[in-house]
Design a protein around this nucleic acid. Structure first.
Lengths: 208, 208
DNA sequence: GTCCGTTCATACCGTTTGGTCTGTTTCAGA
DNA sequence: TCTGAAACAGACCAAACGGTATGAACGGAC
């Protein structure tokens, strides 16, 4: 694929992501995308063999970027601290900074959107969404397990429970944030989750 | 409106809710609804003057039922206990039981779905969604404030923070539950939130 | 320059969409 | 029993939909 072609493909994916975030996937027509990109129908169907194919490629393209970002955050946190709890806390604050970034309009989660429209998507698209969400939580599970291995939680809790709770709190925060139009809401949820962690694993500094 | 007419209207609303939960609103056609209800186009447009009107009436119809249920849960909890913390814990367990009910297929939140498709809806529909969500959290805020007034939390926290966190955790849980297809996930999030409360307000009666 | 595949443009197609129109049935109240 | 509004059915419509067919520009390889 030439540079020009790849550029058009990316333009379509970017525009689609923006439109879908506001109107849903079924609510976004191919013509909407063409209007947003300035491209033609011939070009669109050259890059994507159907609208369903676009749904497929969009979620894969998005999740690749998405996971990469999370992994970068985590790598930076791991480079900066030895103690897994400190790593986790730095990761969370980095994530909160990202969430509070007053950039692109209404934030939201594409995976959440897909799950609320799942009847339109092929089986492997739904599978991919579940898979990415699993990968996302698995990243946290690993880290929480390291914390638990090193420190006794005040109340019995599993790494999986904590991970799923964090992901839930973020996903739910994004919904409230959209509904209310208050940009900082999700980040505040993350802060609140950190409070929970602080109670669960007291004496903040590592003892190793 | 006659009994027969009201019956048809409810049939349409019920069927639409089910369809919309699986396909989104834009992804659900009027013909889909007609097929599901067995009614005719003439009948549909007699009860709803447009598809947008249906969106409007659906969310209002749903939120009325929804809030009524929550208020019942809360009233029962308030009747059973004097201490606000005990009331809250009973409310949460009642809610968890409801969430775990292995009944109607894929659970989800209609408000969440609307916020992810909000460009299609009129201003007052979006306003209503925000309003209902506010009412929902306000119910918790009142109760959490009573708890805080009576008991010093281990770490400084506001009733609003706790309320928004609970709503977030539930909304997010529903998304993961749908994505993974694991029915008990949301209820487990609520349990985890109770753990947080138990840590925050130590000498409270734990419901383990 | 010529060739050939990629990239893009446009006219067009069949189907589905939300919505209208006309007419029929139902049924409570006078 | 008659009447009129409410409830419903189904044919019909224009627009929008996803998708195709055809062919013109473009750009690197030879």
């Amino acid at each position: 694929m030439s540079a020009k072609g790849e550029q058009s493909r990316e333009k379509i994916l970017t525009a689609t992501k923006g439109l879908v975030m506001r109107k849903g996937f079924a609510g976004t027509s191919v013509d909407d995308i063409l209007k947003a990109t300035g491209l033609s129908k011939g070009s669109f169907f050259h890059h994507f063999k159907s609208k369903g194919d676009l749904a497929n490629q969009l979620i894969r393209w998005h999740s690749a970027q998405d996971l990469k970002m999370f992994r970068t955050f985590m790598a930076q946190a791991e480079a900066a601290h030895d103690d897994p709890m400190d790593q986790l806390l730095q990761f969370l604050t980095a994530f909160e900074t990202y969430l509070s970034d007053p950039d692109s309009p209404p934030r939201g989660c594409l995976y959440a959107l897909y799950t609320y429209e799942d009847d339109h998507f092929e089986h492997d698209v739904k599978g991919h969404v579940a898979e990415v969400l699993q990968t996302w939580t698995a990243m946290y599970i690993r880290k929480f397990q390291e914390v638990i291995d090193r420190r006794q939680p005040v109340r019995p809790v599993t790494a999986k429970q904590l991970s799923e709770m964090f992901v839930s709190v973020i996903e739910g925060g994004l919904i409230l944030q959209r509904a209310y139009g208050s940009p900082g809401l999700t980040a505040r949820q993350s802060e609140q989750f950190r409070e929970y962690l602080n109670l669960l694993f007291p004496d903040g500094r590592a003892v190793t």
